[in-house]
C-alpha cells in the first residue's frame, strides 16, 4: 500500500472514530465558509446590479430656455468630440414634456395645471464605460459647467461609484471576518487532529521505532485535516445553496426586478471550486501543524 493510500485509510477511520468532535470541527469550518460564501454571493449579485447601473449611467446636461440654436449646436459638437462620450441625444423641452406625459399618465393634471412647459431641454449623454477613469468624466463635467447656455450638469455615476466603494469595503470587511472565523475553524480542526494523534500515540511510537517514513507517520493526520476541511466547505456550499433558494423565494421577482438584475445568481463554478479548495487547504494546514508533534 502506498503512503497516500495508507494515509487516507487511517484518516477516514480516525474521522469515523472521532464522531462528534469531527462533526463539531466540520461545523465550525462550515460556519466560516457560510459567512465567506454568503458575503461572496451577496457581493456577486450586488456587483452585477452595480455593473448594470454603471453601464447605463448617463450624464444629463440641462440647458437654459433662452439658449440659441447656434450655441446648442456648438455644445452638441463639443460633447461629441469628447473621448469620454459614447453617444449624445438632444431632448427638446417639448419632447421632455411628451416623455413625462407618456411615462406618468396619472400625473397628467400636474402638467396641464402649469401655464408653461416646466421641463428644460437636455442633452442626454451616454458615457464610455471601458478604459475611462473618473478624472476624464470630472474634466468633462468641469468643462461643461463653464460653457454658456448650460444650466446644470447631473451625473448619476458619482453615487454609483461611491456605492461601489462601499460594496468593496464591505467585501474587505467580510473577508477579514471570514478570515478570523477560518482561523478559529483551523484551530478546531487542529484540536481534533491532536485528539486522534493522542489516541494513536502507541501506534506512532511503534511507527517511529520501526523506522516508518514520516509520510506514513504524519500523512494520516494531514489527510484527516484535509477531509474535515473539505467536508466543512462542502457543507457550507450546500447551506448557502439552501439559503439562496429560500431568500430567492422570499424576495420574489419584485425586488430582483426593481434592482434591474433580472434574477439572482448563485455562486459560479469558480467560486464553488475556490471554496472547496480553500476548505481543503485550511484543513490540511491545520492537520500539518497539529501533526508536527508526531515527528
Amino acid at each position: 500500500m502506498t503512503g497516500v493510500g495508507y494515509a487516507f485509510e487511517e484518516a477516514w477511520a480516525s474521522v469515523r472514530r472521532a464522531g462528534r468532535s469531527a462533526a463539531v470541527s466540520i461545523g465550525t469550518i462550515a460556519i466560516a465558509f457560510v459567512t465567506l460564501g454568503g458575503f461572496l454571493l451577496v457581493s456577486v449579485n450586488v456587483q452585477r446590479v452595480l455593473d448594470r447601473w454603471l453601464e447605463s449611467a448617463e450624464m444629463s446636461v440641462y440647458l437654459h430656455d433662452d439658449l440659441s440654436e447656434e450655441l446648442r449646436t456648438g455644445l452638441e459638437l463639443y460633447l461629441r468630440q469628447q473621448v469620454a462620450v459614447a453617444a449624445v441625444e438632444y431632448v427638446s423641452k417639448e419632447r421632455a414634456l411628451e416623455r413625462f406625459r407618456a411615462d406618468f399618465p396619472e400625473l397628467l393634471d400636474v402638467t396641464t395645471a402649469v401655464a408653461q412647459n416646466p421641463f428644460p431641454a437636455v442633452f442626454e449623454v451616454r458615457l464610455r464605460t471601458e478604459g475611462m477613469d473618473a478624472s476624464a468624466v470630472d474634466d468633462l463635467t468641469t468643462g461643461l459647467a463653464g460653457r454658456g447656455g448650460v444650466a446644470d450638469v447631473r451625473y448619476d455615476r458619482r453615487w454609483l461609484t461611491r456605492l461601489t466603494g462601499i460594496v468593496t469595503s464591505a467585501r474587505i470587511a467580510a473577508a477579514v471576518i471570514a478570515g478570523v472565523l477560518m482561523l478559529g475553524a483551523a484551530f478546531t480542526v487542529a484540536a481534533v487532529v491532536r485528539l486522534s494523534l493522542h489516541a494513536r500515540r502507541a501506534e506512532i511510537d511503534i511507527m517511529q521505532l520501526v523506522g516508518a517514513p514520516f509520510s506514513y507517520i504524519r500523512g494520516p493526520f494531514i489527510v484527516e485535516g484535509l477531509l474535515l476541511g473539505g467536508a466543512g466547505a462542502a457543507v457550507a456550499l450546500l447551506l448557502i445553496g439552501v439559503l439562496y433558494s429560500a431568500v430567492g423565494r422570499w424576495l420574489g421577482p419584485d425586488l430582483t426586478g426593481l434592482a434591474g438584475a433580472g434574477q439572482l445568481h448563485f455562486l459560479g463554478l469558480r467560486e464553488g471550486v475556490i471554496m472547496i479548495l480553500g476548505g481543503l487547504a485550511v484543513g490540511a494546514a491545520a492537520g500539518t501543524v497539529a501533526s508536527r508533534s508526531a515527528r
Binding site: 500500500m1 511503534i206 520501526v210 523506522g211 506514513y216
Partner: peptide, 11 residues
C-alpha cells in the same frame, strides 16, 4: 504486520 504495513510493504 503493522511493522511491515507502515513501511509500505505489499499486503
Amino acid at each position: 504486520s503493522f511493522a511491515l504495513r507502515v513501511l509500505g510493504m505489499p499486503v
